[in-house]
Design a protein around this nucleic acid. Structure first.
Lengths: 294, 294
DNA sequence: CCACCTGATAAAAATTTCTTACCATATGAT
DNA sequence: ATCATATGGTAAGAAATTTTTATCAGGTGG
C-alpha cells in the first residue's frame, strides 16, 4: 500500500530544484544526467503524479510544490539522524556513566577527565564515587558502564583489567612517634590505637587481621577519619592514594612487612557491550592509567 | 562524510527487535533470513558499530539502544510522508481553490460540492464567487486552479471546456404586462424601462445593444437589482441560472428572437498543471455538469 | 541555420539486494 | 548423552536496481 521512498531520489529532486536543471544537479551530485532523469521518473511513476512540469521549462507541478518542503523535511531528519548516529558510533557524542572508589575519583579523575574531554569534547560524563563493593555492583547491574576500583569479588559477571597497585601504609599525626620511620612492619604497630575504615578489609587476609578486628573505632567517612587522626585519637591504615596528600598534620608511612597492596583496575560487565563512548574511554583509561604507580 | 541510510534496513532492525529474532522478522517481512542478516550487518559496518549483541542471544548493544528510537522516528516520519504524498497524488487530500460566477456558486455548487465531497471526503475547498471577468483573471493569475464561468476573452492563457448553455430571458414583476407571454422577442420590449446589470454585456453583440446602452439604471449587485425589480422600477435581462428561482414576485420569460445564450464552461490555466485534487474535481465537473441544461 | 543548451531514451555495465543451500551453535526433550 | 529443532552466519549465484555511455529530439540565441 505505502510505497517505500528512498532518500536518494528525494535528494535528487531537491537538487534539481535548487540547481534549476537536471544537468546542473547531476554535476553537483557527481552523477550522470540520465541517472537523475530516470530516478525522478521512477519516483513520479510510483507516486502516480508528476513532480516536474514536463513542458518547455522544468517547473514544479502543484503536486511537486506540495512535495518539495516535505521531501526537504525528511532529508533534513535523515541527515541529522545520520550525523548523530555516526557521532555516537565514533564516541564523539554520548553519555558515559562511570563509577570509581573515592580515592580514584578525587585524586586521579579530575586530571584524567580533563585530558579525556580534550580529546572527546562532545561527551557527557557522570562520575559516581562509591566504595569498592558498590562500584562493582553498579557495573554488574548496568547502572554504570565502567568502574575503576579494586575488585570486591569476581562473581563471573565482571571483567577486570588491572591498572596499577596502590600500597597500604600507616597514617598518623606528624608528631606521632611512628612518623620518624621511613617504613614500618606490623610488629611496630603493637599497642597503637588502630582506627578501622572502609579499606581495612584489605588487611583481613594478613597477619594484621586480628588487630584490625580488635580496633576500637570504625569510621567509614573520610573527613571524619581525618579529623580523628588529626585529633590524635589513634592511627589507621590507608592505601597511599586514599591518603589526603596535602594534609600537613598527617603523614603516611609505607607498611612493608605484610606488604599489602590494593589492586586497582577497570571493571566492566562481561556480557554487555559498551557504548561507543565508553569504548573510547576504556581505551583512554588503559593508555593513560595502566601500570602507572603513584 | 555522512552515510546515506536507507529506510529499508532500519525497518529490518526494528522488526528484528519487535519479533525478537531474525527469523521471525524475516517471516513478517516476507524476506529470507540471510537478507536481514546481511542488511543489518551492512548497516553496522557502515556505522562502524554493532547494533545487535553478537553473542548468545541477540540483544541490542548500548549503541543499538541509542539508535532504535531514532530509527523508529525516521521511519515514522517516512511513513507519514509517504501516506500524505500518496493521498495528495490520488486527490484524496489537498486544497482546491476554485472560482465561479455567482449564479453557478449559488445554484449549482451547493449540491455539486456535496456530491463531490461524498466521493473525496478529505479535501478542502475554497470557493470564490466573482464576475466572469474576475474569475478568468483569478485562473490566469493562479489564484485559483479552476473556474466555472462564461469566458471573458480568450487571451491564450486559458483553456476552456464547454459545460452547458444558459438562456437569457427577461425578468419582470409577476403583475407586469409582459408576464403573460411564454416567450418574448426583442421588439416587444420597446418602451420598457430596462435595468442594466453585470450580465447585460451578453446582449452587446445583438440588435438589443442600443437599448441596453440607453438604459437608465445599471445595477451590479443582485440583491439591489431584485429589490428594484420587485419595486416595479423596470425590467431586466438575466441568464436563467441567475434568476432567483424562488422569488414569487418576479417571473422569467425566455427571450427568443435574438436568442441569446451564455456559455458556461470550465476554465483552467493552459500551461499550469493541476494539483491532483483539482484534477479529480475537473473530472467530476465534466462528468456531472457537462451538457446538463437547467 | 547552426552551435549549444535542455531533457528523454535504450542498452549495457556496475552495484546492490535477495535467495538458496549449507554450516555451526545452542536449547530442550527424550 | 543424543537427537530434533530452534537460532544466526556464510558463500555463490540469481534477481533487481541503479548508473553510465551513447544517442536522440526539441528549443534558444547568435
Amino acid at each position: 500500500m505505502l510505497p517505500e521512498l528512498k532518500i536518494q531520489p528525494l535528494r535528487y529532486v531537491i537538487t534539481v530544484v535548487e540547481e534549476g536543471s537536471f544537468h546542473g544537479a547531476a554535476r553537483r551530485l557527481h552523477r550522470s544526467q540520465p541517472a537523475l532523469s530516470m530516478a525522478v521518473r521512477e519516483l513520479e511513476q510510483r507516486l502516480g503524479q508528476n513532480i516536474f512540469e514536463r513542458g518547455v521549462k522544468n517547473r514544479l507541478t502543484p503536486f511537486g510544490e506540495y512535495c518539495l518542503p516535505r521531501f526537504r523535511d525528511l532529508i533534513g531528519q535523515h541527515d541529522r539522524l545520520a550525523k548523530d548516529v555516526v557521532n555516537h558510533a565514533n564516541g564523539r557524542q554520548g553519555h558515559i556513566h562511570l563509577a570509581t572508589v573515592p580515592s580514584v575519583a578525587s585524586r586521579i579523575m579530575p586530571a584524567f577527565l580533563a585530558r579525556f574531554l580534550e580529546q572527546f569534547p562532545g561527551l557527557n560524563i557522570s562520575l559516581h564515587d562509591e566504595n569498592a563493593f558498590y562500584v562493582c555492583q553498579m557495573v554488574a547491574h548496568g547502572e554504570v558502564e565502567l568502574g575503576i576500583t579494586s575488585l570486591w569479588q569476581n562473581d563471573g559477571e565482571l571483567e577486570y583489567t588491572h591498572l596499577f597497585e596502590d600500597n597500604i601504609g600507616v597514617v598518623c599525626r606528624q608528631d606521632h612517634k611512628l612518623s620518624a620511620f621511613k617504613s614500618l612492619n606490623w610488629q611496630s604497630l603493637q599497642g597503637e590505637k588502630l582506627i578501622g575504615n572502609g579499606t581495612s578489609r584489605l588487611l583481613m587476609s594478613t597477619e594484621a587481621a586480628e588487630m584490625v578486628e580488635n580496633s576500637e573505632f570504625y569510621i567509614s567517612n573520610m573527613i571524619s577519619l581525618t579529623a580523628m587522626l588529626e585529633a590524635g585519637a589513634g592511627i589507621t591504615t590507608l592505601p597511599r592514594l586514599a591518603f589526603p596528600e596535602h594534609n600537613e598534620n598527617l603523614c603516611f608511612i609505607p607498611l612493608e612487612d605484610p606488604g599489602v597492596v590494593r589492586r586497582i583496575g577497570l571493571v566492566r560487565a562481561e556480557n554487555r557491550a559498551l557504548s561507543p563512548a565508553a569504548q573510547a574511554m576504556q581505551a583512554f583509561v588503559l593508555q593513560e592509567l595502566q601500570d602507572k604507580e603513584r
